[in-house]
Write a protein that binds this DNA or RNA. Sequence first.
DNA 1: CTGAAAGCGCTTACAG
DNA 2: CTGAAAGCGCTTACAG
Lengths: 359, 359
Amino acid sequence: MIRLQDIADMAGVSRTTVSNVLHGNTKRVSQETVDRIKKILEENEYQPNIGSMMLTGKGSRIIGFVVGYSYTHGHSSIMDPFISALLASVQHEAENAGYYIMIIGGDEEKHIVEIASRWNVDGLIFIGYSEARYRRLRRKLNKKAVLIDTYTLQKEYDYQNVGIDDFGGGYQMGEYLLEMGYPEALFIGEETRVVINESVQKLSSDKIFSGLINEKRWQGFRAAMEKNGGFCSIRRFITVSQDTQTRKRQYERILPRLLDAGAAGFGSDYNAIEMINFLHDQRIRVPDQVSVIGFDDCVYAEYVRPRLTTIHQNVEEKGAVAFDRLRRMIEGETLSESSIFAPVKLIVRDSVKRRVPEK
Amino acid sequence: MIRLQDIADMAGVSRTTVSNVLHGNTKRVSQETVDRIKKILEENEYQPNIGSMMLTGKGSRIIGFVVGYSYTHGHSSIMDPFISALLASVQHEAENAGYYIMIIGGDEEKHIVEIASRWNVDGLIFIGYSEARYRRLRRKLNKKAVLIDTYTLQKEYDYQNVGIDDFGGGYQMGEYLLEMGYPEALFIGEETRVVINESVQKLSSDKIFSGLINEKRWQGFRAAMEKNGGFCSIRRFITVSQDTQTRKRQYERILPRLLDAGAAGFGSDYNAIEMINFLHDQRIRVPDQVSVIGFDDCVYAEYVRPRLTTIHQNVEEKGAVAFDRLRRMIEGETLSESSIFAPVKLIVRDSVKRRVPEK
DNA sequence: CTGAAAGCGCTTACAG
DNA sequence: CTGAAAGCGCTTACAG
């Protein structure tokens, strides 16, 4: 490993001078020296020792990737295709920009604060965090941050939100179902509860992550259903449990209504596919008897039969945008908007079928 | 952040003494002092500054998680359910043991060496690495390492292999198909080529990762097929391309043989499910016309219809074992075996049906 | 325009 | 049994 001293020796100057050109304090160094040193730096692909960087408070080039709940749909959240796709994208971008990703299991706030300060991370990416939860953390933690899919109420310039147009997605979903002949379609979303240690209660007053997202999607859905003077009762918004067993029982209970309505939009592809499977097991044909539409367009949407009609969001780009904004904040830029919402679009596949009017 | 000096002040001793009890150089310190210091250390939850640790060469508590190929089945490998499950498990264990996971995109060897030495990682976990590739890396890199699913020919005690009983899994697969009435069943595996920069060729002489694994699985499959004096031609081992389009065309070409044989075992759940979908699109019913059996029992095996009969491996445990062994090596233990192979077992679901003898 | 020196938080050989 | 001091690789206020 080549040190600052080595570079200084080669250039015949002191460490100070090399360090100065390294940090752009170049006004006090002759142009000639600057050029010479820069050349040597490049030739030797000089990389400062990380331990030293951390010790001198110059950052660490570590980005903490914080996952706000350990389990989704009963599996570790890193296995969630949405989160792993995001991680893959962020990791890819970070690597190209000379940053490094450290995964932080984010269930205990104390834990996150500890890791972030111990490692002196340059910034954090939060996924699945409510704003309230983040703000609580924020008090103890002074770091640049990007929240993914968290609706923020207050504008702040040291953190950012990167999300998608959930309302618009819900609207497209509703509009499409309406057009395909399902003015009574249901909207089914899974609740998200963040479990911190023993207590779920503590969070009950928070606007919960996915809860809020499904809320927005439902609002869009509803707006579309009502656009031609129709009425869409709140009773058509069904929240199902996070627990797989309970959820299955809920599906059973919903079934008659679903058959009646003929179609349902879902808050996620996961639940949509789960419903397709459930119906399959009940010998109910999708889309002949029931039409289903998902949300997210995860990898598996094309991988099931019937192929899932769904609202597409570009996860890869989301990860790239999140990282890019974080990097710019770390490097001292002041970003103009505090939130960005990427557009989404309907992808028509095979899980929705035009309703044939009954005779 | 509380420093060594602070602890020393509280205890009324020098940093040296605190450091000595911290590292167990306790013979030269009075028992009384040791106890007092330990108590203070605990009360204050003292954690050494990482920058300092790195600078003094005492390790970093970073484990590099190296993924040997950037893409599997056309997606970033972090999105592969097998790899993300592994990552989730390793991350979980590491966090509990006070280690931290840094993801390293492992396509360029130079890159890995650079990151590993720059961060002074304590150890590395390699997934999807051929032994030859690893050994090449090894020359430039003196780190403890665990290889996952890499068959090693030479015994060495500074790295370990954690794998599963691929042969046994193939055997169970073959045995089951035989018993269900398919003595002519095919075995279909996807080739794995690791692309480093431009050149695929360079690696052609290596025993490629998944190639070797499928080889073992096939050997088990074949052994089962031949157990009662039967004959299983090598022609029944079909290798399909890594490219999705090409693979689809290959499926089309294989189709007549498959219908004839009535069943196929696959090297992975991914390909098995893909085939089920392919058959579905051809209006061929699984398992009525063709039986299919997968390998790995990934999350989606239960999530498709028909539910996939497959060979189960415990990925979570694999991750835990891999981390545990690495940790023990890092902490100076000498492990007795250089490889361990976890058992696998057949999980019967709905994708294989007993063949009805023709009349 | 350039460099000597102090300091970041830790470890360790060595002196007392 | 305990501590002063040098050193790891870097940065930065300051002196020249």
